[in-house]
Simulated assay, not measured.
Amino acid sequence: MDTKSLMIDTATLLFQQKGYKNVGVNEILKACNVTKGALYHHFPNGKEELLIACLKGLNEAITIDIEDIFKKHPSTLEAIQSMIDKLIHNLETEGTITGYTFSSIVSEMATVSEPVRQACSLLYENMERIYCDKLVTEGYSQESAFEMALWMTASIEGAMMLCLTQKSTTPLKTISKLLPTILKGRTS
């Protein structure tokens, strides 16, 4: 792995685990075993530029993963439940779902940095687009599909945060259990 990729992967994990403000540049450098010069060579604007690179990497990885899941399942309900099952499995086996959650970064940085806010917004928009497109193919109107996609994004993201804080998979299991009722009959 090249130095830039190593810094992005390491910083992504650290930011997700500890939050952006709680991770110092020196901690990233030490974890990567690189110099400050290497950081500023790849990220001339420093830590915030590195964060934006991390968010872009998360965006790509999460979007690809969700698209793959949605392509494998004929319905939105099956796809979302498969995605939630994957999150639950990760939480139960790895004790975390850091590969999917970036809410801590959003809550810390979205009001402080416009470029970071935009990077976070893009990921949420990609998730909602995937959900919305699938719902439209199932007969939902564009407006209804957009509203449902927004609800699913907010519910799943909120449930992930609750799972992490409660150290329990119950919030995600509850969302999965309620989905059939919520999606039923909402095709107008």
Rank of each mutant, 00 (worst) to 15 (best):
M1C: 08
T3D: 06
M7H: 01
D9Q: 15
A11T: 03
L14T: 07
F15M: 01
Q17M: 06
Y20H: 03
Y20M: 01
Y20P: 00
K21E: 10
G24H: 12
V25I: 15
N26S: 10
E27W: 10
E27V: 11
K30I: 13
A31L: 03
T35S: 13
T35N: 02
K36P: 00
Y40S: 06
H41C: 05
H42F: 07
H42M: 05
H42T: 03
F43M: 04
P44S: 03
K47D: 02
E48Y: 00
L51Y: 01
L51H: 02
I52Q: 01
G57N: 15
E60S: 01
A61R: 14
A61H: 08
I62H: 12
T63I: 02
I66C: 04
I66H: 02
K72M: 06
H73M: 01
P74R: 09
S75I: 00
L77W: 02
D85E: 07
L91S: 10
L91W: 13
L91F: 15
T98G: 11
T98C: 09
T101Y: 11
F102L: 08
V106Y: 11
V106Q: 09
V112A: 12
V112T: 11
E114G: 05
Q118R: 13
A119P: 00
C120P: 08
C120S: 11
L123P: 04
Y124F: 14
M127C: 12
R129L: 12
I130R: 07
Y131P: 07
L135S: 05
V136F: 14
V136Q: 14
T137M: 10
T137I: 06
Q142W: 11
E143R: 15
S144P: 02
E147L: 13
L150H: 15
W151D: 13
T153F: 12
T153A: 13
A154M: 11
A159W: 00
M160H: 09
M160P: 03
M161F: 07
L162W: 11
L164P: 08
T165V: 13
T170R: 09
P171T: 04
P171S: 04
K173R: 14
T174L: 06
I175P: 00
I175G: 04
K177P: 01
T181P: 03
I182K: 04
R186D: 08
R186M: 14
R186A: 13
T187C: 08
S188L: 13
